[in-house]
Amino acid sequence: MKENIFKKYIIGFIIGAIFMSFCVLTATLLGGFKINTIETSHTGIKTLIPILCMLVGFIIQGGTEEVISRGWVLPVVGAKYNVPFGIIISTLFFTLLHGMNPGMKLMPIVNLILFSIFAVLYVIHSKDIWGICGFHSAWNWFQANIFGIKVSGTNMPGGSLFSFHSVGEFELISGGVFGIEGTIICSGIFLIGIAYLSYKITKNLKCNFNKQD
């Protein structure tokens, strides 16, 4: 059982790392982000120990947000009323947690909602929160301490392996003050994730229904 939990967490962590890396690479290729090639005291391999310390922090932070939003609010509200209402309330709760973050505009709000829907579907598909805990922690850690990008508009401590920053005036690609999470690139990858998980959940439901017949 413990091995299964660890496996689910690692798979979620890897998926989160891939998703974030894809978003940063795409935004850079489209001209919304640029890498700073001048190494500073807060970037590069010399910051490895602080970066690893931040990983521990993000494991706690990401896991805590998921336990509260998807591990508590979702099942409690869903059991008392219904699953769709539980999804709506947990999504609103998660979005409001970030409501006061710097650079909060329409696109960041849209992406917070999309992420929350994606997270809910991930939990429903995997039947527990371990995978999405890993995803959430990797998403934030890679964003802050691997690529050096603001997390939901907030600069994080600990340094970073690389240093990417928003450029240009087209905020749909650069994310502006909010960072990569305010781009249509994140919208796109979460929509793909939502579509895939919806398909898998629907397919599993049909298979279970057919078995009952």
Rank of each mutant, 00 (worst) to 15 (best):
H125I: 06
I149Q: 08
F58P: 10
F147K: 11
Y81M: 04
I113N: 00
I184P: 00
N82G: 13
I124A: 09
M104A: 13
I185M: 06
M104P: 00
L161S: 04
G168S: 11
A138Y: 05
I59C: 14
S166N: 08
K127F: 08
I60N: 07
N82C: 15
S174Y: 12
I124H: 07
V73L: 13
I68D: 02
I184L: 11
V56K: 10
W72L: 04
M107F: 12
A79E: 15
T183W: 04
N82L: 11
T183F: 10
L55Q: 12
V56F: 13
G158Y: 02
V110F: 12
L96A: 06
W141L: 01
G57E: 08
F170A: 12
L96P: 01
L112S: 07
G158R: 03
S116K: 09
F147E: 11
F164A: 05
T95D: 06
I173Q: 12
S166L: 12
F94I: 00
I109T: 14
S152T: 03
F178I: 08
R70E: 05
G63T: 01
G63Q: 03
I124W: 12
V110I: 06
Q61I: 05
R70C: 06
F164H: 13
I180V: 10
S137A: 04
G158W: 04
I185V: 07
N101R: 00
V120G: 14
N111W: 05
G158M: 07
V110D: 00
V177S: 07
L97M: 05
P102I: 00
C133F: 03
F115D: 00
V123E: 14
H165I: 00
P157C: 03
V56M: 13
P157Y: 10
I68H: 04
G153I: 01
S126C: 13
T95H: 13
E65T: 03
E171P: 04
F118D: 01
T183C: 10
G153E: 01
T183V: 14
N155G: 07
F170L: 06
E181I: 06
M156N: 11
V73P: 08
V73G: 11
E181K: 05
D128S: 03
M104R: 02
W139I: 05
S160Q: 15
V167M: 11
S137C: 10
I129S: 03
G99Q: 03
G131K: 07
Q143D: 00
N111L: 02
V110P: 02
G179A: 08
H165M: 07
S166P: 13
G159W: 01
G176Y: 11
I87V: 03
K150D: 01
L92V: 10
G175R: 08
Y81N: 14
I68F: 11
L112M: 09
I87A: 03
E66A: 02
Q61R: 08
I59A: 05
G159T: 01
Y81W: 12
V123P: 00
S163G: 04
A138T: 13
T95V: 10
S163L: 11
G134D: 11
F164R: 09
W139D: 13
T154N: 05
V77W: 07
I109F: 14
I117W: 01
I109G: 06
S160G: 07
P84K: 09
A138S: 11
P108N: 03
I113F: 02
G182R: 12
M104K: 01
G168D: 14
